[in-house]
Nucleic acid binder design. Structure first.
Lengths: 201, 201
DNA sequence: ACCTGAACACCGTTCAAGT
DNA sequence: ACCTGAACACCGTTCAAGT
């Protein structure tokens, strides 16, 4: 046991790590700073050095969440070949995997974005979403999507994917239906886009 | 002041009413049974007669939410003329209005659905969504939507609307963009459906 | 039937004090 | 620089007791 002087500088990381697990397994409502401190082996006041209050911990959790989400989205794009639709399918699946595996964390991430202290959190979110805009741009270049601001063109598509994830976490849809629902939804969306492209020519 | 014997049978209603306001104005996390009791003028143990614990209050809140959502969706359909697309637009707008005006309540409603005690809550949800399935069926009858199980055909459409609301409450989209975003998304979806209908013939 | 008041275990937050 | 221990106000939940 390396109990003595365990925390030389990783208390913050240990707290975040345990907090992330608790949020995933028992939800944000069950997350208690005192219990966290107990689990990690410090006094209940120690976390205060790293997180002034509970909200600061939640913000840090959200920020770490965006970092991880970005990483997973980039990995999905990278492992899906060159074509737009394949990449889009892989990215949507990765997003939904995250949204379902860490549903409450994702809520935290988006809830945090519209609060005052959001500065660094918004930046983390932007980094995570960059890969999506690049993907949209590729779709436009291939003629699969309407031209225009990628952020605007991708919005409805993103909303659809996000909504599907919400239906699963809200148990309106069983998780095993995702296999056809997501490809279906994306194919449906792209059909609508091709129609629009035709009409614009 | 009719302070004496104020609560003859409306304590439950008074608690729910005040709770709904608090959730809307300050969020679920800020909702305290003791504060609620104080605001409504009873001792902190009185609510227990009506709601055994905090979760029971949240469930009741969710159930009342579904009742109200159903009412508003039906009103939207009724006030939108006879055509499918007009009714769909009106219904989507009503849903989004609810989702934005009572974002945390809506979370509560969907979160409650996948818990054990959900019995009566699921029924309330089903009643609220009935109007949506009827609307989908009308769309199919008019040839605007693919044939098939309305619950399945409407799923992606519902996900899109729900996702758009989530983008607004997550402040990824400004509320004033809804005016074009929602009609756009629906029109886009219907384009994709018409393509599919053509291909099936 | 419905409500009160005291009690218990827990929490977030603060702060003087230790090393 | 980082952590501890005591203290304060608050909370959810329980329960005997009142009317």
């Amino acid at each position: 046991m390396v109990q003595r002087r365990y925390h030389h500088g990783n208390l913050r990381a240990a707290l975040l790590d345990q907090a992330q697990r608790t949020v995933r397994e028992r939800g944000v409502a069950e997350l208690s700073l005192r219990e966290l401190a107990r689990e990690v082996g410090v006094s209940h006041a120690a976390p205060r050095r790293h997180f002034p209050d509970r909200q600061a911990l939640l913000d840090a959790l959200a920020e770490a969440g965006f970092e991880r989400l970005g990483t997973e989205l980039r990995a999905a794009v990278a492992s899906a070949g060159e074509g737009f639709e394949a990449r889009l399918q892989a990215t949507a699946a990765a997003y939904i995997r995250f949204a379902i595996g860490d549903a409450e964390l994702l809520e935290l991430m988006f809830a945090g974005k519209h609060r005052e202290s959001a500065g660094t959190l918004v930046e983390a979110a932007d980094r995570a979403f960059t890969v999506l805009f690049e993907l949209i741009a590729q779709g436009q270049a291939e003629g699969a999507l309407e031209p225009g601001d990628p952020e605007r063109v991708g919005l409805v598509l993103f909303a659809t994917v996000k909504g599907i994830a919400a239906l699963v976490t809200g148990s309106m849809v069983a998780a095993d239906q995702l296999d056809w629902l997501v490809p279906d939804a994306i194919a449906h969306f792209l059909r609508g886009s091709r129609m629009a492209a035709v009409q614009q020519n």
